[in-house]
């Protein structure tokens, strides 16, 4: 493999082989891309979970989250009890012309109200229209995929572990009761 011009022939072979292979071009507008599960397309809001704790707005590095809210007083449930107050969300908006997709807001949200959605086709012709209000953010919530399955060898999630522990305890108790009954008989 060292005759003169071997390199030239090799080059020709490479291009010819590439021609017979499948191309890698993505036909994007016709064929939607297959995105990985953790794609950072847009930030979706599950406003039912939001408690207006303002953590996201405060942690945002470029302050692109706008939150307005008011307090509402709930009448006391029982006599002698104090009236409860709770926060009601008036406005939740994210300015995607400022957002740098760092995901800190999603990380810090203690109540799982913010999620990454793989939706990425929300270009606008005016930069002002890139500030999306909570209705739009709530709509994107429908595009959030289910969390990816855990590794087969991964530790069990905490919720399932506690639930299973409780169930195991119950089952053990039931089994013990059954045995006792059997002994009696």
């Amino acid at each position: 493999m060292s005759f003169p011009g071997a390199g030239l022939a090799k080059g020709l072979a490479v291009t010819l082989r590439t021609m017979t292979k499948k191309t890698v071009t993505a036909q994007y507008p016709d064929v939607q891309p297959v995105l990985p599960p953790r794609s950072r397309g847009v930030i979706a809001l599950l406003e039912e979970n939001c408690t207006v704790c303002m953590l996201c707005a405060r942690e945002c590095p470029d302050w692109c989250i706008y939150i307005d809210s008011h307090k509402e007083t709930l009448p006391a449930a029982e006599p002698n009890a104090r009236a409860r107050t709770r926060n009601v969300l008036d406005r939740f908006a994210i300015d995607f012309s400022l957002c740098m997709y760092c995901g800190i807001c999603i990380e810090v949200c203690p109540f799982d109200a913010l999620f990454w959605s793989p939706e990425f086709e929300y270009a606008e012709t005016d930069i002002l229209e890139l500030t999306h209000e909570r209705e739009k953010l709530r709509e994107w919530m429908w595009t959030v995929p289910a969390p990816p399955a855990l590794d087969p060898a991964a530790e069990e999630p905490k919720e399932i572990a506690t639930a299973r522990k409780a169930a195991d305890k119950l089952a053990a108790a039931a089994a013990a009761a059954l045995e006792e009954k059997g002994d009696d008989a």
Binding site: T18, T23, T25
Partner: peptide, 13 residues
């Protein structure tokens, strides 16, 4: 087309 496919592309479509 040939150049596109030799470069792993599709060319004009």
């Amino acid at each position: 087309k040939v150049m596109a496919h030799m470069q792993g592309r599709l060319g004009p479509m």
